[in-house]
Design a binder for these strands. Sequence first.
DNA 1: GTAAAATAGTTGCTATAACAACTGTTGCTA
DNA 2: TAGCAACAGTTGTTATAGCAACTATTTTAC
Lengths: 147, 147
Amino acid sequence: MADTFINNPSFFKLDATLKKLRNYWQKMFDSRQMDITVDQWLLVENLYKHKKTTHNELARNTSKDITTISRIIELLVKKGLVKREADIYDRRKVYLQLTPDGTEKYKQVKPLVHEMRKTGWKSLTEADYAELTRILDTIYGNIPTKI
Amino acid sequence: MADTFINNPSFFKLDATLKKLRNYWQKMFDSRQMDITVDQWLLVENLYKHKKTTHNELARNTSKDITTISRIIELLVKKGLVKREADIYDRRKVYLQLTPDGTEKYKQVKPLVHEMRKTGWKSLTEADYAELTRILDTIYGNIPTKI
DNA sequence: GTAAAATAGTTGCTATAACAACTGTTGCTA
DNA sequence: TAGCAACAGTTGTTATAGCAACTATTTTAC
C-alpha cells in the first residue's frame, strides 16, 4: 500500500542522524581541546553573525527555548566568551555579544566545523541538499504550531 | 561556488525539525492525557515489537545511550508499564517486557501516533520518503564512528 | 492616569543525553 | 584455575529541553 512512509520511523531516523552528528562534533571538539559544547558553539556562531542580540532573538534564531538560551549564555559568560549589556531605554532587555575571547574562539573552531560539514556531505550533491531542505521544510510546515 | 550546502546549517535544520516534531508529539500526548513522554513512547513501541529484550538491545534499536535506557526504563517500571525479569543463565542480564498495562498503553497511543505521522508527511510522497531516507543514511554513513 | 496585559528574562523542576566510574557476573587465557 | 578482560547494568555529574511560576519592567486599555 501507499503508506510505507507513514508507518516508518522517520522520527527515529532524524533523531539517530542528529545524535550521531552531535556526538561526532562533540568528540572532535574535545579531541582538539576546543573546550566548548555543540550547543554553546551554535550560540557563539550566531552571536558572531549578529554581533549584538537579545536572548529572545537568539532563541528564535537557534530554535531553542529561551530558558535554554538563558542557561547556555550563563555558561558562556562564565567562560568569558560572551558579555551582557543592559539596554538603556528598556531595562528589561539585555544585549548579548561576544567578547574578544569569544571572537577568538569562533575563529578557532570555525575551520573544524567547516571540515566536519564537508565530511557529513561527502558524496552528496547540491541537489541533495536542496531536496533535504525541501522535505524538512515541508515537514516543519506541516506541524501545527498550536494544537 | 559549489559549496552552498557545506556552508549552510543543515545541522540546525535537522535539529529544528526534530524539536518541532517532538514538541508536537508531546503536546498531543499531554492534551489526550496519555501520561507518557515521546522517548518513553519510543521504548514502549520497541518493546511491543520485540516482546522481550535487554537494555543493550533496546539501546541499539533506539539509538539511545544505555544509561538513558536504564533511566527511562526505571520510569516505565514505576508507571507499571514495563517489568524486569532476570535471566536464569546469565545473572548479568535483565529481560524487559511490557506488562498488560504497557500493552494497553501501546494500543491506546498507537492510533494517535499514526495520525501524527500522517500529519507530518502531508503533501509529501513515497518518493520523498525514499529521498529523505537515502540522504540521511548517507550522512549517517559519512560520519566516522571512531575519531 | 491607573489597572491589566504584554514583554524580557530567571529559577525550579523533571526528562533526556552522554561520559566516567562503579558493581557484579561471565568468559578467556596462560 | 587464578587472574584478567569483557560484558550487563547502575549511579554520579554536567549539559540541553521545555513547562510553570516568578520578578521586573513596559505597553495597552479604559
